[in-house]
Design a protein around this nucleic acid. Sequence first.
DNA 1: TGCAGTGATGACCACACAGTCATAATACAA
DNA 2: TTGTATTATGACTGTGTGGTCATCACTGCA
Lengths: 200, 200
Amino acid sequence: MKTKQKVVSEFRRTAIIDAARSVFARKGFTRSIIDEIAQEAEIAKGTVYLYFRSKKEIYRAVLDQDMEFVKKSTLERIDAAENLKDKIQAFALARLENAETRKEFFRIMDTESGALSYTRSQYRDWLREPVLRLAWAIEDASKRGEICCVSSEKAAWVIADMTKGTIQRRLIGQNNAPLSEDSEFLLSFIWAALAIPLRT
Amino acid sequence: MKTKQKVVSEFRRTAIIDAARSVFARKGFTRSIIDEIAQEAEIAKGTVYLYFRSKKEIYRAVLDQDMEFVKKSTLERIDAAENLKDKIQAFALARLENAETRKEFFRIMDTESGALSYTRSQYRDWLREPVLRLAWAIEDASKRGEICCVSSEKAAWVIADMTKGTIQRRLIGQNNAPLSEDSEFLLSFIWAALAIPLRT
DNA sequence: TGCAGTGATGACCACACAGTCATAATACAA
DNA sequence: TTGTATTATGACTGTGTGGTCATCACTGCA
């Protein structure tokens, strides 16, 4: 059973992380000010430092949590799908839907992919793992002759690129079309590129 | 004829911009320090402020110059190409080659796309114009029945996404393959998606 | 009611850095 | 050579902000 202490302590951590995510998404790491995060979490600045050692640590806590969540949910959906086409759709939909639900997190990732050195090393895996999983599936289908022969890894990466770009355009508001329109376009485009055709 | 003054003045401006580009690429806007830029340009800090009003103005000068160059050269190559396939290749190659030549600039763009509010408004056009030009070409070919019917704008954007992603991977060093390998993959992938097939 | 003990507070400190300015060096003209 | 104008310099200032810490408020127990 959780002690009263633990409950309060967890509550505070969560409040800080939530406030931080919101502020970081709006201003980016550098321009975010601890005082503002504290205010948004409805506590005093000093209290923040009872739960986190530094600004960077808060940043990491936000990203770690969200990256882990999105990565996991993407992997699960890929694995749940039976065939390649569904796996690709699973990947794209997982990303697109997560981006809708967790706008703030995706905004941070888009805006600051290279800002913190931390990111450089850690950032890659939340995308890389799902992409590699996709690459295996492509490799597999390729060997069986279900699709035309391509470099599976390159193909997986450009699929990720298109998905990411689509998400970015939606986040900026450049594209307000329903999500299904974007996902359908993506899927048909990708599948056209992979499927075995008899060219005209 | 240029006066001595003008020559020296232009020389200094260029030196500052070059130094700034290098520093910005390494550290990003916020972590770049004017003193370091000055040092790299082999002048004193005060001198920097004889040629630029502020740090932001230097940043803008760097980006304006490079964005203009890359945008122009991309547009020219697209326009020079005869048919759609060549135009797409022109776009991709222009980007990939420019990224090779102007690594520092591309690194800034990749790292800080959202860092400066300035970027938000201006950033888009250096990519948008070429992409829209590509979209017209796709629209055109689509109407003539040269390729299968797709949303031309969406298609143009995902082509840009894949190119951008490929460039990023090369910049990070995740991919050291010869440029031609990447460009050929891109082209074949894109063309497979667009070309009119008789599906199996 | 008084007394630990725990967690919260915000005034305060230290520091990094953009931008300034009095002074120095240099160029050029008479 | 001297005098004036132009450009360069770097010590200095002001500000914004991350992080600290002495003090306070609250809780629960005796």
